[in-house]
């Protein structure tokens, strides 16, 4: 589904060129849940922009769905640490936003609005927001906004979901709740996910594969399969295999940070 082949990305900073990624290679299979972890400032977010086609690599190739990425990929949904809801739109209108942009929904938006609204409401229902569609984002808590943001990234049936630390700003309980929401949606629909995070437990709980990035300039230095059985329950966080995995990852990152 996603393939990064020896990708280097440099951009012009204030004090000359900055190397964000150097020689990064990464493969994510179709329907796979991949997590990317690494120390802060290692170019995780740059990775997201490369895959979605928002920036072009300086060297190397980025392939999504078998094609080299030349512009915005249009098949991706994105969610960020900040829910980024538009405050002048209701939650429902916020969720519908991608359908106003992306084809083929865009040209049919007026004609089939009813159908789309029903679809958005169903999606809101799956994340536990039924009946909140007519609220404004600022009338809701951070966790609820983040749920809505997740709906917005899924409304156009993307085959690829890019998540950039989506749960980082939430409290621990809400975060675990949303892990389960994401897990359930993913298991039901089966899209490909790239989750950028610095929360190792989050990565271990949700992902099939965990990629560890080095400090800047970023590179994938280790890839680990998570062989914990699915479906996973929050209880699994207390499984020794789980703790071992988190422990190993933690050491790896500590190593990288010192280097």
């Amino acid at each position: 589904m996603i393939e990064l082949d020896d990708v280097t990305l440099a951009y012009r900073g204030r004090t000359g060129p900055v190397l964000a990624l150097q020689g990064t290679s990464l493969k994510v299979g179709r329907g796979e849940f991949a997590a990317v972890v690494g120390p802060s400032g290692c170019g995780k977010s740059t990775l997201m922009k490369l895959v979605t086609g928002l920036v072009k690599p300086t060297q190397g190739r980025v392939l999504v769905d078998g094609h080299e990425v030349a512009g915005p990929v249009k098949i991706a949904g994105m969610a960020f640490q900040n829910a980024n809801m538009l405050p002048w739109r209701t939650v429902l209108e916020n969720v519908l936003l991608p359908l106003e942009i992306v084809e083929p929904y865009r040209s049919k938006f007026r004609a089939e609005k009813k159908q789309y609204v029903a679809r958005a409401e169903k999606l809101l229902d799956t994340v536990g927001l039924s009946g909140f569609g007519s609220r404004f984002p600022w009338e809701m808590s951070g966790g609820m906004q983040q749920r809505a943001s997740l709906c917005r990234s899924l409304i156009h049936d993307p085959s690829l979901l890019m998540l950039d630390e989506p749960f980082a700003a939430l409290d621990a309980f809400t975060r675990e709740e949303l892990w389960c929401v994401l897990r359930d949606v993913w298991e039901r629909i089966g899209f490909t996910v790239v989750l950028v995070t610095h929360d190792l437990r989050e990565a271990a709980f949700l992902a099939d594969t965990i990629h560890v990035m080095s400090a800047r300039p970023g590179r994938i230095i280790e890839t680990r399969k998570v062989d914990l059985p699915r479906p996973r329950d929050l209880e699994i966080c207390y499984d020794p295999r789980f703790s071992d995995l988190v422990q190993i990852l933690r050491h790896k990152i500590a190593e990288v940070r010192q280097a």
Partner: peptide, 27 residues
């Protein structure tokens, strides 16, 4: 305009005009 918000739309293939109409002007 929040860069993340612009990214969300641009990744969907939104043009500059789309970004302005949907986010910039209301904002």
């Amino acid at each position: 305009i929040e860069p993340e918000m612009e990214d969300v739309l641009r990744a969907l293939g939104a043009s500059k005009l789309d970004v302005m109409l949907k986010i910039g002007i209301p904002r």
